[in-house]
């Protein structure tokens, strides 16, 4: 459905997108992942014919973005980072305008407006001015306009940014429900989003492609291991972390132990285990048998977050704590 070859966008001073190549099959939801400024939006803008590429080619829905932009534009729906809404228009009127822009007319237009406002849950605000809608509604109207002409390809630039958690979930569910009918590319810097919705992920950093794979494979690829967080306390108010490390290291299936936080009385370790080894019970037993207290033991699933940081090379600067907190919540 989408074939991108050596796509490059250079500006006077910098290269925003540097020889990116990937392929997306029909009906897939693909996460386009990267830190801010990685070139996600630029790439999407090239796919939507908003920006012409400096070099390379992109074929979207069977047409080249440079050769036949009109044909491409007929077959894509695009939701930019801020939904392109005219604040003085009413929702229904706006959908009708966009629908006509995309070439719909008459009964078909009417039927599509009804369908998308139902699908995106904006039917109740059809008579309201867009400027007066809440952010969640605006985002949904943005989605509605993107799918109004039933495009083959749907390109969504950070569709959940700036929404509250409830709205984020609603939007994600909506996007998920759209898969199958449409091939969807969605850019985000939120990793859990990709884990939740996408089948395939394309990671870029500083304009370069760093990884493209299925979400499952990527998770597996990252050492394929489980991370366990262990907090150990000494009985008499003192604890030698080195001793704990040495003891835990003897548990079979343990790959690596990292001291994460050290206090006089207790310390936290991050234990990385081998693939297919379930070692939490052994760890607990080892600690208790050695005469320490086990304060906490929980799994910190290896998240895309870590893969992401690893691949984009920002591990040192990355917020390690966040990873831990996130892992705890799941």
């Amino acid at each position: 459905m989408i074939t991108v070859k050596e796509l490059t966008k250079r500006y006077a001073r910098n290269t925003a997108v540097d020889h990116i190549s990937f392929e997306i099959q029909k009906g897939q939801i693909v996460g386009f992942l990267g830190p801010n400024g990685a070139g996600k939006t630029t790439t999407m803008r090239m796919l939507t014919c908003f920006l012409p590429p400096t070099a390379g080619s992109a074929i979207v829905a069977g047409f080249d973005v440079l050769e036949e932009p009109m044909e491409v534009k007929k077959r894509i729906g695009y939701l930019p980072e801020t939904p392109p809404l005219y604040p003085e228009m009413m929702t229904g009127e706006y959908l009708s305008f966009v629908g006509s822009l995309k070439g719909l007319r008459g009964a078909e237009l009417k039927q599509r407006i009804d369908y998308v406002s139902e699908r995106c849950a904006v039917a109740d605000v059809r008579k309201k001015q867009l400027g007066k809608l809440s952010k969640g509604y605006r985002q949904r109207v943005g989605l509605a306009q993107a799918i109004i002409h039933n495009p083959d390809v749907l390109i969504l630039d950070e569709p959940t940014s700036g929404l509250d958690p409830k709205q984020i979930n609603e939007t994600r569910d909506l996007i998920k429900s759209l898969a199958g009918d449409h091939t969807i590319i969605l850019s985000t810097h939120i990793l859990s989003e990709v884990e939740q919705i996408c089948q395939q992920v394309i990671i870029i950093s500083k304009g370069k492609l760093v990884a493209t794979d299925t979400v499952d494979n990527l998770q597996g690829r990252s050492r394929g291991a489980e991370l366990v967080l262990v907090e150990v306390a000494g009985r008499n108010g003192a604890l030698d972390p080195a001793a704990v490390q040495a003891r835990l290291g003897k548990v079979s299936g343990v790959n690596r132990i990292v001291l994460k936080a050290k206090q006089p009385a207790h310390s936290t370790f991050e234990v990385e285990t081998q693939k297919d080894h379930f070692v939490r019970g052994d760890l607990a037993r080892a600690i208790v048998e050695a005469g320490w207290d086990l304060n906490e033991l929980r799994s910190a699933a290896v998240s895309l977050e870590e893969i992401f940081l690893e691949l984009t090379g920002t591990q040192e600067a990355g917020p390690k704590d966040e990873v831990v907190v996130r892992g705890a919540g799941e």
Partner: peptide, 13 residues
Amino acid sequence: RTGTIELLTTSPI
């Protein structure tokens, strides 16, 4: 300013 230009330039018009 509002970004609606992106809608116009990515529509078949």
